[in-house]
Amino acid sequence: MTTKTFASNGSPRKVRPASPAKKADAFVLRLYVAGQTPKSLLAFSNLKKLCEEHLAGHYQIEVIDLLVDPQLARGDQILAIPTLVRKLPMPVRKIIGDLSNTERVLIGLDLLEQK
């Protein structure tokens, strides 16, 4: 198994938002990756930038590396990597890909109308 080598590479596991203050409409986001592939890294940086821009202060990002916790793939029905799951607010939404199409990410997160 290659899990260990990838995990020890210090993949971004849990990243706390800059401001931990919780609001009623807090966003709980979960990013599923499989090791530090270029696509995963790109997705993570895209996500971070986007959240800072649109959700500053009320979001939470959890990064799950499936190479470390493969059993978690089943729970959120993950097939594609990277996948961003919006756990909150409900309903659950899934966004796949490296998140480089910002407009589609915003639509996926239901943020486009808020603008």
Binding site: Y32, L42, A43, L66, L79, A80, T83, P91, I96
Partner: peptide, 23 residues
């Protein structure tokens, strides 16, 4: 898989499926 719940935002692969199956 439910198409309506999925938004595609760029390049992706099916590594998740591989990992699930492998696990």
């Amino acid at each position: 898989i439910e198409r309506s719940e999925i938004e595609e935002t760029g390049e992706y692969d099916l590594e998740g499926l591989f990992i699930r199956l492998g696990h």
